[in-house]
Simulated assay, not measured.
Amino acid sequence: MIEKINLENILFLDIETVPEEENFNVLDETKQALFDAKTKYQRKDDFTAEEFYERAGIWAEFGKIICISVGYFTFKGDIRHFRVTSFFGDEVKILKDFSNLLNNHFSQPQHILCGHNAKEFDFPFIARRMIIHQIAIPMKLNLFGKKPWEVPHLDTMELWKFGDYKTFTSLKLLTNVLGIPSPKDDIDGSEVAHTFYVEKDIDRIITYCEKDVIAVAQVLLRLRREDLLIEEEVIHI
């Protein structure tokens, strides 16, 4: 039962990704051919590989992480806070800093990672990029040999499914039906690459990423039938 989980043991997170290079033509011929083969099914005959490259950020083999935002609850008596911070800049530094956070502060058996659609996207994407950069995978992301009930991950989309495997529910939709302020009031995922490469506005992306983290925490509170966070309880570090 999620109501029995101590909120202070959960690290909420979200990542933002973009194509590894700004333009398809920067890739060498081998990587171009591999991207063409990888995306042939998704593209069908509607787009060329070059036209489709703006979506490359959804694959760890062709994308990179530009921001990881995290949040966690703290309680002092009746006072509740939700602390939010972000790692951004060079991808290697992002991954190392995030790994240090997990290893130093969220590595105990009771600690859990939580995101929206994170089991399908965020968690494996982070792990794959760590392998590509030869960074040791923290215990909380290394699932080798673990039984399903031993995996220390919560996924708010999975919780909302209640065993229904046929549907995808976006965070924007879920916040709407649960009466939570939408985190998607500025850019959305399809605009992150343009915001990063063309507008060069990483601060806007960080804000967007942190809003998603807060929204995931709000969804979990709703699922536990607890009061939502108010603005004064959220602290940006």
Results as ranks from 00 to 15, higher is better:
residue 89 G to P: 04
residue 145 G to D: 00
residue 151 V to I: 11
residue 133 H to V: 09
residue 154 L to S: 06
residue 151 V to C: 03
residue 90 D to H: 07
residue 117 N to M: 04
residue 96 K to V: 02
residue 159 L to W: 12
residue 114 C to S: 01
residue 158 E to G: 13
residue 93 K to V: 11
residue 126 I to C: 12
residue 94 I to P: 00
residue 115 G to A: 08
residue 94 I to D: 00
residue 138 P to M: 00
residue 106 F to T: 01
residue 94 I to V: 05
residue 130 M to H: 08
residue 99 S to P: 04
residue 119 K to C: 09
residue 147 K to S: 11
residue 150 E to L: 05
residue 112 I to F: 01
residue 149 W to F: 12
residue 139 M to I: 13
residue 121 F to Q: 12
residue 134 Q to N: 15
residue 149 W to T: 12
residue 87 F to I: 04
residue 124 P to S: 11
residue 99 S to M: 02
residue 110 Q to H: 10
residue 109 P to G: 02
residue 112 I to S: 04
residue 159 L to P: 03
residue 161 K to G: 03
residue 146 K to E: 03
residue 149 W to A: 06
residue 132 I to W: 15
residue 107 S to I: 02
residue 88 F to E: 10
residue 158 E to Q: 15
residue 160 W to P: 14
residue 109 P to Y: 02
residue 103 N to E: 01
residue 88 F to P: 15
residue 130 M to I: 09
residue 90 D to L: 10
residue 88 F to K: 13
residue 101 L to F: 05
residue 98 F to P: 12
residue 149 W to H: 11
residue 98 F to L: 01
residue 145 G to S: 02
residue 125 F to M: 15
residue 99 S to V: 01
residue 109 P to M: 06
residue 91 E to I: 05
residue 111 H to F: 04
residue 120 E to M: 15
residue 101 L to H: 05
residue 102 L to D: 00
residue 143 L to I: 11
residue 109 P to E: 07
residue 133 H to S: 10
residue 116 H to R: 02
residue 146 K to V: 06
residue 160 W to R: 15
residue 126 I to W: 14
residue 149 W to D: 12
residue 136 A to T: 14
residue 89 G to A: 01
residue 143 L to W: 14
residue 88 F to Y: 14
residue 123 F to P: 10
residue 149 W to R: 12
residue 99 S to C: 02
residue 135 I to F: 03
residue 141 L to S: 07
residue 116 H to G: 05
residue 108 Q to R: 11
residue 94 I to M: 03
residue 90 D to S: 09
residue 99 S to L: 02
residue 147 K to M: 09
residue 110 Q to E: 07
residue 132 I to R: 14
residue 138 P to L: 00
residue 153 H to P: 02
residue 140 K to S: 04
residue 150 E to C: 10
residue 108 Q to G: 08
residue 130 M to D: 10
residue 154 L to F: 05
residue 135 I to T: 07
residue 110 Q to P: 00
residue 93 K to E: 09
residue 96 K to W: 00
residue 161 K to N: 07
residue 127 A to C: 12
residue 108 Q to M: 11
residue 88 F to V: 10
residue 137 I to R: 11
residue 115 G to R: 04
residue 102 L to A: 01
residue 94 I to R: 08
residue 89 G to M: 02
residue 88 F to Q: 12
residue 111 H to P: 07
residue 154 L to E: 03
residue 144 F to L: 15
residue 123 F to I: 06
residue 158 E to P: 07
residue 105 H to V: 00
residue 125 F to V: 11
residue 91 E to R: 05
residue 142 N to C: 08
residue 113 L to W: 05
residue 130 M to V: 09
residue 100 N to P: 09
residue 128 R to Y: 15
residue 100 N to T: 10
residue 88 F to S: 12
residue 154 L to A: 06
residue 124 P to E: 14
residue 157 M to P: 06
residue 98 F to N: 05
residue 153 H to L: 05
residue 132 I to L: 14
residue 122 D to I: 12
